[in-house]
């Protein structure tokens, strides 16, 4: 049981990194990303392939995952410079799907649906098999902490204020002389790097990656985490990631009590529960359960119920 809890906590860690990255991109800057699964997969396959095919040391392959995530994020952001946010949603989703398609179809390199087996693990030879999961959890926790500190520092810095200005209104930020495009690209690239990191850590943890893990649904779980925690609020979304994972995993145990449903039906019910909760939360608290600190007027100005009025068309 405790092995199960450790594994669950490790997965919560991956979610937390992804959620922090999304919070940087969307919560703090207002850039939509539905291609989370794509960045996650890119990180996983970069590190996995470099270590399996070229035999590079794990530390370096994980760093390379961050680099590819960074580059991919920058490129997607470049694409988005003229796009409205709903178009960016489609483009990022497309990016994610294309990464998955490549992983699925180029099976001479990626092993396709058979899955890529990865033997290398960081510090594996220094610990025995019993304690290693705990060590890995510690490693993931360290990564979460580092990402958290970086994102939180950005939030508190003058750049964080600029990002909020971009989020509220690009045009205003542009007029104020903030270089909106540069900031958008920087933030999206950095978020991409964090997602790549999460993917690499995931790959070396499960040691077998296959494309079906990286379905667009991953994005929904991460959005759910950020929205539950409160967009822009880094502490809140750590909690959010935990809540989402608990719902996902906790409902597994329902199977012990409800024996007339098979595993597939239970997993369907899990997703339905997540979806219904997500809609319910968005309807009641569009900016999340725990609103962003010190900036509560943002909720009022961007998402309040509007009167049907021509004024809003301006």
């Amino acid at each position: 049981m405790s092995a199960y809890l450790i594994s669950m906590a490790t997965f919560v860690g991956f979610f937390m990194i992804l959620a922090l990255a999304l919070n940087l991109q969307w919560g703090m800057t207002g850039m939509v990303n539905f291609g989370i699964a794509g960045f996650y997969a890119l990180g996983a396959y970069t590190s996995g392939l470099l270590s399996v095919k070229l035999g590079w040391p794990v530390g370096i392959t994980i760093a390379m995952s961050c680099v590819t995530g960074l580059i991919a994020g920058g490129l997607v952001a470049l694409l988005s410079m003229r796009l409205r946010e709903d178009y960016l949603a489609i483009v990022t989703l497309g990016f994610g799907e294309i990464v998955r398609l490549i992983a699925l179809n180029e099976d001479q390199i990626t092993e396709g649906p058979r899955g890529l087996k990865i033997d290398a693990r960081p510090f594996a030879d220094m610990f025995d098999r019993e304690t290693y999961p705990l060590v890995y959890l510690g490693l993931v926790a360290l990564a979460v902490a580092v990402v958290f500190v970086i994102v939180e520092c950005i939030r508190r810095s003058p750049m964080g204020r600029t990002l909020r200005a971009i989020r509220e209104d690009d045009v205003v930020a542009e007029v104020l002389g903030k270089n909106v495009l540069r900031h958008r690209i920087q933030v999206f690239a950095l978020g991409g790097a964090f997602m790549g990191l999460a993917g690499a850590l995931y790959a070396h943890y499960v040691q077998n990656i296959s494309p079906e893990v990286f379905m667009p649904m991953v994005a929904i779980f991460i959005w759910m985490s950020v929205i539950v925690g409160g967009a822009g609020n880094n502490w809140g979304l750590l909690l959010g990631a935990g809540v989402v994972m608990t719902i996902l995993e906790g409902s597994r145990f329902m199977g012990d009590f409800i024996d007339f449903l098979d595993a597939e039906q239970l997993s369907a019910i899990r997703i339905i529960v997540i979806g219904v909760l997500l809609i319910a939360i968005l309807r009641v608290r569009p900016r999340g359960l725990i609103p962003e600190p010190k900036f509560s007027f943002a909720a009022a100005s961007t998402d309040q119920e509007r009167q049907p009025s021509i004024e809003n068309a301006k």
């Binding site: 969307w26 939509v32 709903d86 929904i220 979806g275 219904v276 997500l278 809609i279 968005l282 309807r283």
Partner: peptide, 13 residues
């Protein structure tokens, strides 16, 4: 964006 997320959630449901 809120509505977009809602519509994806609805699709999943």
């Amino acid at each position: 964006v809120t509505l977009l997320v809602v519509s994806i959630a609805l699709a999943l449901i």
